[in-house]
């Protein structure tokens, strides 16, 4: 029978680590994978994926099928395929066809945590910082990022595209689409863009749109934040970014 554990995603430094239980029927696996992707929808969008097929080798056709599922419509790139049989985090240098070795199942779950360790072992204690998503590339019409935390986009956000974050939104490019910062109600957040020309801007529960036939876009980075219940746009100058928080 289908089991949730048959398809699992873990976030690692290189992207997403996808483990498939090769003992499960391949069609069931495909279905489970589609379901998982659908439920997370755009959370994963655009990530690189490392596929771990466990101790069962997948045929080339099967891997191509998985690549298809990942690529459309979720935009995930299958970066590499590993067959992890050891307790080590898989590395590309590792010889792929290692002799089979029995291992306790417990080690398997620990393995995926490993690449994260250098991050948590930082000498400075940051306390509890909100997570930040860095997205490289242009967000085009119909594409959408929704994230719990801050979002930084290195690229443009085109009209028809949507960025939704519970924290701040920074666009290192032109923001021409829709941005919603503080989506869960935080009104102390800001939207920053090198060129701030959104179709519509939302901060917390306030919705703003540019004035009809308004003046052209400023040729400098700007920051939008909430002041007395109105969205105010100002040039981005040094410490202004931090606002009165």
């Amino acid at each position: 029978m289908a089991d949730k554990q048959d398809v699992s995603f873990k976030g690692v430094k290189e992207g997403l680590y996808l483990t498939l239980n090769g003992n499960q029927d391949f069609n069931v696996l495909k279905e489970l994978l589609s379901e998982r992707l659908k439920s997370a929808e755009f959370f994963f969008q655009g990530s690189d994926v490392i596929l771990d097929t466990g101790d069962t080798p997948f045929s080339l056709e099967q891997i191509l099928e998985i690549q298809q599922i990942l690529a459309y419509p979720y935009g995930l790139r299958l970066k590499k395929v590993v067959r992890a049989e050891t307790g080590q985090a898989p590395k590309e240098r590792e010889p792929k066809a290692k002799p089979k070795r029995q291992e306790p199942p417990k080690v398997r779950s620990e393995r995926n945590e490993e690449p994260r360790e250098p991050v948590t072992k930082s000498p400075v204690s940051y306390g509890k910082l909100p997570e930040t998503l860095l997205y490289r590339g242009t967000l085009r019409s119909g594409q959408r990022i929704a994230y719990e935390g801050n979002v930084v986009i290195v690229g443009d956000v085109n009209p028809g595209a949507e960025v939704k974050a519970t924290g701040d939104i920074v666009v290192m490019g032109s923001l021409r689409g829709l941005a919603h910062a503080g989506a869960s109600g935080d009104s102390g957040v800001a939207v920053v863009a090198f060129s701030l020309a959104p179709t519509q801007l939302r901060i917390a529960d306030v919705i703003g749109r540019p004035p009809e036939g308004g003046a052209g876009v400023a040729r400098e980075p700007e920051v939008a934040r909430l002041k007395d219940g109105i969205i105010v746009v100002e040039p981005l100058e040094g410490t202004r970014w931090e606002g009165e928080r």
Binding site: P159, Q200, R209
Partner: peptide, 17 residues
């Protein structure tokens, strides 16, 4: 759905909630 245009042609795109 997915390729909306009518709002753009009508100039109402920025009012969509």
């Amino acid at each position: 759905i997915g390729l909306r245009n009518l709002d753009v042609v009508m100039g109402l795109e920025n009012r969509i909630v």
